[in-house]
Write a protein that binds this DNA or RNA. Structure first.
Lengths: 356, 356
DNA sequence: CTGAAAGCGCTTACAG
DNA sequence: CTGAAAGCGCTTACAG
């Protein structure tokens, strides 16, 4: 099949119509203003007219030009996403959601991923995006904790929203899950299975999410009273490697432990790996549970964890940003709002009742 | 800090300029046609004029409107990316590259990720993108092998390019690395370290990439002559789990093996995990190497592997697609072309000379 | 509820 | 090498 034949097909063109609102108007016997009104869900259109126009659109498989709309409404916006977090999977999901949100809102996403923990790079990257003229920006944990970065962005009139941080913030909008509640539920799951001696690997210090998860754990344990012993707690850093080390400590110090809860999945994978290396079977000898649901399928047995609807978080973030960009451009004040998205406990194979 | 103060800052506005080419023209004392010409790198502009205009642009921190340009040039295009491949990391990198390519070309990326192996979903997803009116599409392995899908897309006049497939194809453009050569080099690395008994985990059957890697392995082994024994070969399926199983087979059947080469990193991770479980130290007792460089940092010791510049592959793919879309819209024939991108051997900690 | 008209910020023949 | 003008496909006051 040669290029030429492809080009012939082009002329056959049952392709996605390149009709414009003018064509629709002609076919429907109305003005293009009216067509535009149904496109923008404008109230003041006679229901019959609307139905008629909609029908024609369907027939022609009309697909409106985003460029034209953006130009006309001045709602064109590039929005940045600087990412500096250990987890690829979290990033990917977030990106997917942000992408969908962008495509719905006519925004253009500009992404830069920095090596985890390299704050200097992250600042540079953010500044360069500002130079490039972005109008909004998603700040994913831990960047959402950088007060100076936030101030700089606000000074440059950039609409930002923090992702993976919640709490009462007055300087920027946030979207996240309820980490406290989720951790609380996970511990209850373990206790419900009969675990009494539980190890906990704390998340990266300084992240509010880590703090909130830890608070949730404590709350559940306290509520369990005598059904649970004092937990064996080790500080982790959200990396696979720190999970390995944490498990090493927990398992060599305390032979009674029957379940380990790691504050994220990467660490849980590390915990599992070390448990295996030490000859423990999961979950028969020890239950291992994580948080995030970002490594499903690349760990075995499959991990019990908390699923964050990360994609939804990303889409919501874009939505909030665009609302604020539009507000600002219209001369109005942006709104600061906190969104909490629902999480889900994913009970899989890595958790089971303790031996005997 | 209340919303109101933010809004006040808005008015201070040292923000990214919202100047138009008209403003630039006025400041530079030329017509906006001329400004536009320098923007489009049009030849026929007096070097002095060009420099002048460029200077003004810099001063004002001018950032042209993509919407206006797209509208004017009719180069607006949504391009789809349907993905159905086990590796998250590969996907992410590809997406990053595609995103950058899109942002450079004014394209809008529409992504859909399907569960790996679910071809039915992948077809549905592709068809729905076609309904939505995309003009181009990236087909990532293994979808780039689906002759029927390709035909359907071409029939709908969609510009496609295959990613992760090479070979002489006449129906679509492709971009990939030289899998044969890379595998060949990896085996040479192992032989160079002194390994004589090598295990190989084949990639998912049916993928040309798997086939090419396997051919490269054979070539290197053949060339090594008596320095290498006949390899122990096991079929894998590109998943972590299949790597676990493969290592189980290889290591229990053949105690002489000192190195295992898995056709991708997910399988290499599985191999490593099983090796550890069986009490082998990596790399002291056994070297483990992979392919793709997609899991750096989440496996330990760090994996020796082949780095694919996946992001670059993604960006190139978008570039090719946009060229073809423009060609088609201009009534010209699209070009079919094959791009091979350079790979790199990443020698890390998981490979070392065999014992004694 | 609906039309006619102006405008969004670019590009690109067409003249000169 | 450069300007004036038309046009890309929408949206949105402004009248009616």
């Amino acid at each position: 099949m040669k290029p030429k034949s492809v080009s012939k097909r082009a002329k056959a063109g049952k392709a996605p119509s390149s009709a414009t609102i003018y064509d629709i108007a002609a076919r429907a016997g109305v003005s293009k203003s009216t067509v535009s009104r149904v496109l923008t869900h404008n109230q003041s259109v006679d229901p019959k007219t609307r139905a008629l126009v909609l029908g024609v659109m369907k027939d022609v498989r009309f697909s409106p030009s985003a460029a034209a709309r953006n130009l006309s409404t001045r709602s064109e916006a590039r929005i940045g996403l600087v990412y500096s977090n250990p987890s690829v999977a979290y990033f990917t999901e977030l990106l997917m959601g942000a992408l969908e949100g962008s495509s719905r809102n006519g925004a253009q996403l500009v992404v830069d991923r920095c090596e985890a923990g390299n704050l200097i790079r992250a600042y540079e990257s953010a500044r360069s995006l500002v130079q490039d003229g972005i109008a909004g920006m998603i700040l994913a944990t831990p960047l959402s904790e950088e007060a100076e970065l936030i101030r700089e962005l606000l000074d440059n009139n950039i609409s930002i929203v923090g992702v993976g941080t919640s709490g009462v913030r007055t300087d920027l909008s946030c979207v996240d899950i309820d980490n406290y509640r989720a951790a609380y539920e996970m511990v209850n799951h373990l206790i419900g299975l009969g675990h009494r001696y539980i190890g906990f690997v704390k998340g990266h210090p300084g992240l509010p999410a880590s703090q909130n998860r830890w608070l949730g754990v404590q709350a559940a344990l306290k509520e369990a009273g005598s059904r649970a012993a004092r937990p064996r707690v080790v500080q982790g850093y959200n990396t696979y490697r720190s999970g390995v080390d944490a498990a090493d400590q927990i398992l060599s110090k305390d032979r009674k432990i029957t379940a380990i809860f790691a504050s994220n999945d990467d660490m849980a994978a590390g915990v599992m790996s070390m448990a295996h290396r030490k000859g423990f079977n999961v979950p028969q000898d020890i239950s291992v549970v994580g948080f995030d649901d970002t490594i499903a399928g690349i760990v075995w047995p499959e991990l019990t964890t908390v699923r964050q609807p990360i994609a939804e978080i990303g889409a919501t973030a874009i939505q909030l940003i665009m609302e604020n960009i539009r507000a600002i451009r219209a001369g109005a004040a942006p709104k600061i709002q906190n969104h909490l998205i629902e999480h889900t406990l994913m009970i899989r194979e890595s958790s089971a009742p303790p031996r005997q």
